[in-house]
Amino acid sequence: MGKKTTIALTVGAAGVAAWAASKVVSKQVPREPKTALDFNETIVLAAHGGTVETPENTMAAFTKSAETGVHGFAVDIRLTKDEEIIVFQDEMTDRTTDFSGKVADYTWNELNRADAGYMFQDGNGTYSYRGKGEKILRLQELLEAFPHLLFVITIKDSPDTYEGSLMPSKLWRLLETTGDQDRIVVTSPFDEQTDRFNLYAQNKVAIGAGNEEQMKAYTSFTSQFGHLYRPNADLFTLTDKKGVFSIRTDAFIHFLKGLNIKVYYKGVSDLERVTKLMTAGASGFITDNPSAMMKQVQSAEL
């Protein structure tokens, strides 16, 4: 046996020994159950209120989606110049409002004058909600309008910005005031934001995984050391596009479920895929076409 072979075998044996030792001393700790995610059925959330039949983030959209029987909404939030939390996906454009630029450049009183009923297209044509009284919404008024529904709230402001630095504490104070902690999931593409929010919430609110947390989980899952993964989130929202999470989908969902982590999918549009994901253990779907998704989920459950 050559020297290189001997070294390789030695290194390999050491790796196996380290893996075996870690299995002995390490025990996976599932997340504590969260009331907000305690459903006995596959849930459907309308993204931004539902954007196929009505302008996103408007009361018209949320009301129409609620009438389809959805279980709740997935919304993005941003902070205004005077520190009001509004429901808004991206920065201002003259397509969606009468303004342009950063949300943080405007006060709530200024934004409240905007007409949010912009022109939009669906499969049947082009429509306009201009002049129908649609306004940009504050998160508080949306929570009050639908007190029985689940909200997955995404903090969009970066922690590196002034408004982003304030958002975790502002959001927690709002939820304390409204008493809605048990029907809320807070997430952000920036894991730092949810970490900072949880310093105030102290695990009283369900947390969604950000980009780093999802990558950490998947890297652990595909390695031999998945048993060492310690989750910091209660919900993973995954896309159904090609990419890292398209690999071994069923097994990854099973891995997360073993840690009491719920998995919601967004970007799914056909019944066959919905059925397969439900069979694999997906707990819910986030969609911009809630009426169609409700029918697909109900068909898959038959």
Rank of each mutant, 00 (worst) to 15 (best):
T63E: 08
H71F: 07
E176N: 02
R130M: 08
K135P: 13
L174Y: 01
E41A: 04
L235N: 10
A114N: 06
V244N: 14
E53Y: 12
V70S: 05
M294D: 13
A145N: 14
L175Q: 05
E83T: 02
T97M: 03
I286F: 11
V274K: 01
I153V: 15
L150D: 07
I207E: 02
R130A: 11
Q298N: 13
K132L: 10
G117F: 06
Q214V: 11
D250H: 10
Q89M: 12
T5M: 07
D38A: 11
N203D: 15
D288P: 12
E212V: 12
K156M: 09
G72Y: 03
S65E: 00
I85R: 11
N40P: 12
K102A: 07
F245S: 12
N203Y: 13
E41M: 07
A217M: 08
V186A: 03
L142S: 08
K204C: 06
S291V: 14
L137V: 07
L174F: 01
G131F: 12
M294E: 14
T51A: 15
I247V: 13
K3F: 02
M59Q: 03
G2T: 15
K64I: 03
E91Y: 06
M167P: 01
I136P: 13
A300F: 15
V186M: 09
A217Y: 06
F62W: 00
H254V: 12
K132N: 06
L137K: 07
V25F: 15
A300S: 14
G101R: 11
T68Y: 04
N211S: 14
D234Y: 06
T279Y: 10
S283R: 01
P168A: 02
A292G: 01
F221A: 09
G131P: 14
R113P: 08
N203F: 09
A282I: 04
T161K: 06
T51S: 15
K257V: 02
S299Y: 12
Q202D: 14
S65L: 03
E141S: 11
N57Y: 08
L111A: 04
Y229G: 09
F99S: 04
R78T: 11
A17P: 10
G258C: 13
V44E: 03
D82A: 01
G123K: 02
L143F: 05
E163G: 07
M167L: 12
F39R: 00
R31A: 09
S220I: 03
N260T: 00
D38V: 02
R95C: 07
E213K: 06
A46S: 08
V297L: 03
M278V: 13
N57V: 01
V205A: 00
Y264V: 08
Y162L: 14
R95L: 12
D98C: 00
G15P: 00
K132Y: 12
A66F: 04
S220R: 05
V25L: 15
V87E: 05
